[in-house]
Design a protein around this nucleic acid. Structure first.
Length: 344
DNA sequence: AACCAGGGCAACCGCGCGCAG
DNA sequence: GCTGCGCGCGGTTGCCCTGGT
């Protein structure tokens, strides 16, 4: 078991981080910033204050290698991390970006504010596992997402196992091998290539990612589509952006470090990206849907990933003001993808 | 109550890249 | 150009929790 060069010279601890170690790291990073991770373990232990004079009697140095410190900070301790379940919008974005760039988790994470590559990777891998296990695609369960999970226990039902089968294109998408390689290429998309179809994902919760292919103007008036809208609008009422209150436990953290310890994540969390103020009417009015409050709630959640799927359009085909777009052909998606190296 | 299997996720490992000397 | 170092990334492991038997 090789150790990193940065931690060859001293004994380093491995495994789970203790609250005390987190405290040391947070204290150091917040006061000094991080420039050279290899120096962090040495210096972090000395950044105690009078409250933590306790540390002078034992275990002054942070017995972790710099690499471990970096990982801990990036994946868990830094203040702008969002935790908890992925929102449907985030799921959609992950799927789209993975389809475009493959297992480039860092790139995907860069478009999901507050999410880490590790988190996304874990999410995807568990998703894949479920998918491989349950290749069947029909499910009628659309369970509520009102159960907000403890961050240590986020047993998510795989969206793949619950989506409603709408079209054969979806079947293609969700039954293809999405293990490692990009499956949706911009130049050859089997999923998004129809100019007459607007693709978007919808879901009442993470548990039921209902995917809908919406035909555009020629089919918009079809009653089945209307019913779909109505159905999904009801479901949408449940996935407003919600901060998991269980994670806002910070005041007792620094000193107490009790058994309910959680690092300070949410309280200093940066707000989600804002939708440009020039377009405040981010409402998607759907045919047959009089009350679109739920939709508004849904659209508000787009703030967390504004570059995905929804954009304001002067004369949008759906309801006039907005349109749900083909992510692979949208300018926004192009913007996203343009930030990736052109290795496709 | 005890055991087991499965799932979620934090953390580790190895490799590649960039940069300074 | 070479080497060493530090960092970032993707793949993988293994711990822990939960639910089922």
């Amino acid at each position: 078991m090789g150790h990193h060069s940065c931690c060859n010279q001293q004994k380093v601890k491995r495994g789970l981080w203790s609250p005390e170690e987190d405290e040391k790291l947070i204290r150091y990073i917040t006061s000094h910033g991080y420039g050279c991770w290899s120096e962090v373990p040495e210096k972090a232990g000395h950044s105690f204050n009078s409250i933590l004079i306790f540390y002078t009697f034992y275990n002054i140095r942070l017995q972790r290698c710099g690499k471990s410190c970096r990982l801990r900070w990036i994946n868990y301790l830094r203040p702008d991390i969002r935790r908890g379940r992925f929102t449907p919008e985030e799921e959609k974005l992950i799927i789209s970006l993975h389809g475009a760039v493959g297992n480039r988790w860092a790139h995907i994470a860069s478009h999901l504010p507050g999410r880490t590559d590790n988190e996304i990777k874990n999410y995807w891998n568990s998703w894949i596992k479920k998918k491989l296990k349950k290749p069947s695609k029909s499910s009628t369960n659309s369970t509520s997402s009102t159960d907000h999970h403890h961050h240590h226990q986020q047993h998510q039902r795989s969206p793949l196992t619950n989506y409603n089968t709408i079209t054969s294109q979806q079947d293609i998408f969700f039954t293809q091998d999405i293990g490692t390689k990009p499956q949706i290429l911009l130049q050859d998309s089997t999923l998004f290539n129809s100019p007459n179809q607007l693709f978007f994902f919808d879901g009442g919760s993470l548990d039921s990612m209902t995917n809908v292919i919406i035909n555009d103007a020629t089919n918009r008036n079809a009653t089945n589509n209307t019913s779909l809208f109505q159905e999904t609008s009801i479901l949408n009422s449940e996935f407003c952006w919600q901060v998991d209150q269980q994670q806002v436990q910070t005041s007792s953290y620094a000193i107490g470090m009790d058994s309910n310890y959680l690092p300070p994540l949410i309280e200093s969390m940066v707000p989600p990206m804002e939708i440009p103020s020039s377009n405040n009417n981010n409402n998607i009015m759907l045919e047959g849907q009089e009350n679109n409050n739920e939709w508004n709630s849904q659209v508000d959640t787009q703030q967390c990933c504004p570059s995905y799927l929804f954009w304001d359009q002067e004369n949008g085909s759906i309801g006039g003001d907005h349109e749900i777009i083909d992510p692979t052909t949208s300018n926004n998606m192009g913007q996203i993808l343009s930030s990736f190296p052109s290795t496709l």
